[in-house]
Design a protein around this nucleic acid. Structure first.
Length: 395
RNA sequence: GGGGGAGUGCCCGAGUGGUUAAAGGGGCCUGGCUGUAAACCAGGUGGCUCUGCCUACAGAGGUUCGAAUCCUCUCUCCCCCA
């Protein structure tokens, strides 16, 4: 019985799957650092906490001395991966993809060590002549591709599968060939793709990688996976206050997962749920914005939500700017238009909020019948919509 | 190549000539309760200079006093057969 090499337990801690069994441990016994791959398609411009789960794990490998290879899927983003989705993903415009690729890197390096990371764009090798593409595609069978869960399910349900989608796992697999990856990380929804890459690697006569998948982080709704398009995400570049607030709205039920996957820690035992959540929010904000910002964010939160006061800092809105057509003659301000201008909503929406009693001035509800108010009654006061939107009105 | 089916508001999904800005559900928003949790209750959810006006049921035409609903063409998607 060989000793388990140091590191393997930690490196697989929290993982959902580590396959094939025992392989990673074996790889770790080698003297040379492993090449650990992560592919990200820049389909949305922000990295959120869901990505962080995997990035954390990657950072762990990195600090253990392994080489992280971050692949920006600028080419595959044009293909569209349907994993975990019911419908096909729209193909993005290239300019959009390129722009996303840039912000993606910056954000990924909030978790990873930039100096120790090899960044590659997969257009580098995937943008190949048709002849070579045929060679690649010729190495795999449709049957093998159709083993994937959602493909077979969609086949069975008579739902469409575009040929392009079939290409996706093949290309992702070729990434592994191109960068000679020893290990690939990903979310558990990527399991098939990561395993499939092994086939592609072997078809090219190189050793197959081992794979480590991480559990999927639920979003702020506590139900569905965290994703930008579902709007249930916390971006790593969200401002401290927003990040704190969003985290405080996480359902209790998924809090243990947040602790586990994002902090690699247990929820503090015996703490009241609010307290536990507060610490979670505090720690995560500190991680991305620093300790000071986290403290400010918490104080601001208390002020607004515990003491129910207006925050100290809030956007300032000039009455004239908010009212494109200016106030009415006679110094009256049309409230729906003001609300719309101040908070970037439509005036119809502003009107509804007003009529439903959701609008306050200096903390006092505005009578919904007051569609027009004298300008003097507004200048210098704090306009509030709902619980958390504030603006200071300036003449 | 042939045949069949479908395109409705953020999403799903009713509606098949007249109180239809369009049932119902989901989501979301506001209010209540509260811990910006869950659950629950109430209201809202196209736009606007709002007791009214404008724009909307894939797109363009047409029939009609009147169309999301009927007709024509176009576009898109799905299925089956080959």
């Amino acid at each position: 019985m060989t000793e388990t090499p140091p590191g393997v337990d930690e490196l697989t801690h929290g993982a959902e799957d580590v396959l094939p069994g025992g392989m990673l441990a074996q790889q770790l016994r080698r003297d040379s650092p492993l090449r650990v791959k992560l592919g990200i398609d820049p389909t949305a411009p922000d990295i959120h906490l869901g990505h962080v789960v995997v990035l954390n794990k990657l950072a762990q490998f990195q600090s253990a001395g392994h080489t992280v290879v971050l692949i920006i899927g600028d080419y595959t983003a044009r293909v569209g991966d349907p994993s975990g989705r019911d419908s096909r993903r729209p193909v993005l415009a290239s300019e959009q993809i390129d722009a996303n690729a840039t912000t993606f890197q910056d954000q990924a390096f909030k978790v990873l060590d930039r100096g120790a990371t090899e960044v590659r764009f997969n257009s580098e090798w995937l943008d190949m002549p048709a002849e070579r593409l045929f060679e690649l595609v010729g190495k795999v069978t449709v049957a093998r591709l159709l083993e994937r869960d959602d493909f077979s399910r969609r086949m069975a349900a008579d739902e469409p599968i575009s040929a392009l989608e079939l290409l996706y796992p093949i290309m992702q697999g070729y990434d592994s060939v191109a960068v000679r990856s020893d290990v690939e990380l990903g979310g558990s929804d990527q399991k098939f793709n990561l395993l499939f890459a092994r086939d592609v690697q072997r078809a090219y006569g190189v050793p197959g990688q081992s794979i480590v998948t991480m559990p999927i982080l639920p979003g702020l709704d506590g139900e569905r996976r965290m994703s930008k398009s579902l709007g249930n995400y916390v971006g790593v570049t969200d401002p401290p206050g927003e990040m704190f607030g969003k985290l405080m709205s996480v359902p209790d039920a998924v809090m243990p997962l947040y602790y586990e996957l994002l902090l690699g820690d247990e929820e503090p035992p015996g703490a009241a749920p609010v307290e536990a959540k507060r610490r979670l929010a505090r720690r995560l904000v500190a991680r991305f914005h620093g300790e000071d910002a986290a403290e400010d964010a918490e104080q601001r939160f208390d002020r607004v939500h515990v003491q129910r006061e207006a925050p100290e800092d809030m956007p300032e809105v000039r009455l004239d700017d908010a009212l494109e057509n200016g106030g009415q003659a006679g110094g009256t301000v049309h409230m729906p238009a003001l609300i719309a201008g101040a908070f970037g909503i439509t005036s119809s929406e502003g009107r509804r909020l007003l009529q439903q009693g959701g609008v306050k001035l200096d903390g006092e509800s505005v009578d919904g019948a007051n569609l027009d108010m004298p300008r003097e009654a507004l200048e210098g006061r704090v306009l509030q919509v709902g619980k958390r939107r504030f603006a200071r009105l300036l003449g």
